[in-house]
Nucleic acid binder design. Structure first.
Lengths: 207, 207, 207, 207
DNA sequence: TATGAATGAGTGTTCATTCAT
DNA sequence: CATGAATGAACACTCATTCAT
């Protein structure tokens, strides 16, 4: 199939885009992306009709890569905590291994160049994850919250965790652990009767 | 002699910048910011020598506003949970009331136009908050993690919470509550003995 | 594949630059140069990455044109005076025929936007001329002076001569003659024994 | 007279203008000139209604300074050659001592921002010089040429001489000498009968 | 008179996109 | 399909000049 070579070029452009966006932000020139992908200026537009489309496809591409990584790592027969932990490790490990993609995704995510449709599409493939989270948080403080929200919280913590892991590679696994425990706590903490009276709040002190 | 620089005008430009960045991202033209601030193109550069400086000062300005809001809301004699909850409410309320600032801050935070110095300066005034969080998380899963990390996790959840509150104003206070409980859980959850064996994981099921 | 850079267009831009600089000085807008060259604003920067490079290349372009004109006119078998005179005529004639280039060159030459490297390069191709001048002035008052200096003196007189020729086209050939004789005198005048006592100084008079 | 202080400020601005133009060319910002003169931006315009007027007045100011220097140096009872030589020395010495003024003058002279009127006015005070030159060149090759032309030739050589003196301060007086002899030759060389047959041309050689 | 903030037209340069080759 | 020259709108920033103080 004559598409083989094309697909390689497409990927090269997406990869280049992630790199360049990571370095220069969304204002990065398409020409620089093309050069990084070792492709002519005009060729980029053969694959992506315009910059917004490139950005949206990059968003999806990165999300998909990440999702498949995580998905592949889940030990579906294990208990929920083990499943979530495996996901978490795969997730953050991907972030550390793909700093450019991670940074690009962060920029894209807050920009309004990513359409709602793209964002919606980006959620495909995470239903399984949502289900897992739903079960885990079923008794926790967010048990009433929609999966979207719980997922978003988890993603936010994951992003933060990856940032810190990338910043301090030596402590990466420890940071990964902290992040996981935080998420686990957020999902499952039980407001035991009188929690406010006991626990942390017991140390009723002024600052 | 001669007019002196006008603090009101400075603020007007910063406010305009937040509005325009919220709408158009960091690529927003300085000319549009100036127009929004009802100031001549050139005047913007009298107050901020270049766009990067404007951005950095905007970042600090917004951070400071937010910090002072939160700081003013803390009931320093109450127990820790009450203090944190009050902070949380003030924080998210600010976010809902200042959508432009919030969105602008999100964009600025992930961009590399904000210098490390600015980021460091942005942390001034949150020491008290850090101390509060430190005490609260002293027994929790992140008890060993540096305040920076714990704070970053909390900020990430706060941002997510504000986004969702803004998106669904009707459910704002409920969402705020969920967010708070998530954070509280993240900070204070106790890996009770056998937690893994019991609790959420008890429902050992495959997905 | 794809159009290749067009030498004609390059020349058109250089020519336009000379014209516009002659009229408006070095502050001439690149946009006006582009328009004069019948080229889009951006196209100018395809050929010359920035204004300084355009200026430096223009300097060289004009110098080269002039040099080749002069060079072609030298009757290499004639005696030295005849050779110099032919050069002189070709030189000044070029100046009269290319007023824009001449004026532009004058502005460029005194500006500090022309780099030392460019100035050095501009001297290529005039070695022959230097040699001719060197032989001619070998017995004259500047016999000890470096070729650079003698050449510069000659160039200065040439420039002045061209200015006056251009200003009074009717007397052009006469002015050309005067200029030549002045140069000839400057190069070859012999401080004859007692020159100071006789000659012009004989008319020892007060002013 | 309350003008004393004002005049000082006027001079300060002119001096600053010369310095800044020497460094940055005619595109130098008035603000920089003002700052260099230790005067507020607006003050410059109290003394010189606009930039062109400033430039024209600067031109005249420098010319006048130079003229008075030269004029003061002429030993009016000496023979013509001595008088010219003294003028020449004073002229070039001024140039070496006032590099900023010299460079600024060069830029102004070739620019079209100096009006014909200003150029005409700039000639006031040099009549005496013209007369001297006229007498000296009365038998020379330019005896028929208008004083303007002869003067311009001399000025051109003077400028060149000063440039080289400034570039090589160690050889300044030698260069000054060469320049003078060149001028003297240009003014007084006698195309003796058969000059072409003898003299430099005797070395009838090809290049 | 002196000041310097305010102005907005103007400038060099960039860049997404097109299209001739 | 691939290329890269061509385009011109857009942008950050500058600067001569004005004018309120």
């Amino acid at each position: 199939m004559a598409r083989q070579k094309d697909e390689e070029k497409r990927i090269a452009i997406l990869t280049a885009a992630a790199r360049v966006i990571a370095e220069e932000g969304l204002g990065a020139p398409t020409a620089k992306i093309a050069r990084t992908a070792k492709v002519a200026d005009g060729t980029l537009f053969v694959y992506f009709p315009n910059k917004d489309i490139l950005f949206n496809e990059l968003y999806l591409h990165v999300k998909r890569e990440l999702t498949s990584r995580v998905s592949a790592a889940v030990p579906r027969e294990a208990d929920l905590r083990t499943q979530l932990k495996a996901s978490w490790k795969a997730w953050t490990a991907w972030g550390v291994q793909h700093p450019a993609e991670r940074r690009a995704l962060a920029q894209l995510a807050v920009s309004d160049r990513i359409t709602p449709e793209t964002r919606a599409t980006g959620l495909k493939g995470v239903e399984e994850m949502f289900a897992l989270i739903g079960m885990i948080s079923a008794q926790g403080p967010m048990r009433q919250a929609p999966a979207m929200f719980v997922g978003a919280v988890m993603e936010a913590v994951a992003t933060t965790t990856m940032d810190h892991m990338a910043r301090e590679p030596g402590a990466a696994s420890t940071i990964c652990e902290w992040g996981f425990e935080a998420v686990w706590g957020a999902l499952t903490a039980k407001p035991a009767p009188g929690d406010e009276a006991r626990g942390a709040s017991r140390g009723k002190r002024k600052l």
